[in-house]
Amino acid sequence: MTTQTTTPTSGTPGTRPAAPPPKKRSTAVGRAPWILVGPFLVLFLLTFVLPIVVAIGQSFTTVTRAGLFGEQGVTTSFAWFENYRIALEDGNFIASIWRMLLFGVVQVPVMIVAATVLALLLESASARWPGFFRATYFMPYGIPGVIATILWSFLYVPGLSPIIDLSEALFGFTPDFLGAGTVLWSIANIVTWTYAGYNMLIIVAQLKAIPPEMYEAARVDGAGPWRTAWSIQLPLIRPALVLTTVFSIIGTLQLFAEPQLLQTVSPAIDSQFTPNLSAYTTAFAYNDYNVAAAQSVLIALVAFALSFLFLRLTNRSSR
């Protein structure tokens, strides 16, 4: 491709500013992509690749301090899988991963199904004011998880929550949003509230890409709205559903802000409630960066494994 550009310029003499000599031209074309991609690549290596390499390196080393406060020198040595052993033998860390899997198995499908149903309803001809509803559902995505959690925590705390007051007045029942058995689902509610509209928007984007002729053909064939949704819309938005599900799986394993904030109002949340909270506690409360690095690597590996597993499953069933 690059060699082709050298020939056509020679035929057009005169008024136009003289084209650079052929040789120079082709090196310019060869250099251009690197100039364009270079800055991104440098920053990507610095903020993604290098930290991962550092984390992996740290997860295999151990730091021993001589003396009570390390005043007699600090030695770093290769530790093989020692940090991973410590991380994997920590029952609370393993429990936090299982907790997130349970969370994901329930919350992700509920959210994706809700987002899909909302998207289909909004795009159906039966909905009034679709623009208003779409904007309303999407709005929480712009509210940071921290602020969403502050908002919902006020609605969860007894004495402050109008929802608890309302439930007591209407049903004589006092819900406990922050108890040991319920707080996980209270967090699930915050996450769903924040991201359902975002996922809905991705699905709406793909629904809008379905050519009108498809609907026309379905109508000619006598398909009702249910049939159209099931046989045309759902199969065609499949890539969007896969994308949103993978992002949700990754997001679930990263859960941090919501449980960290709710810690102050819910005694049921300990400092190792989620894997990320666990790694944060290990690093900043126990100052054990090496084990924290091993935990971070394990979290990323689980996220990768689940994403690939899901992609593999969906790929197979579509054949």
Binding site: F48, I52, A55, N276, S296, A300, A303
Partner: peptide, 8 residues
């Protein structure tokens, strides 16, 4: 995961 790179 973005949080996996934040610590390192």
């Amino acid at each position: 995961p973005g949080t996996a790179t934040a610590l390192p």
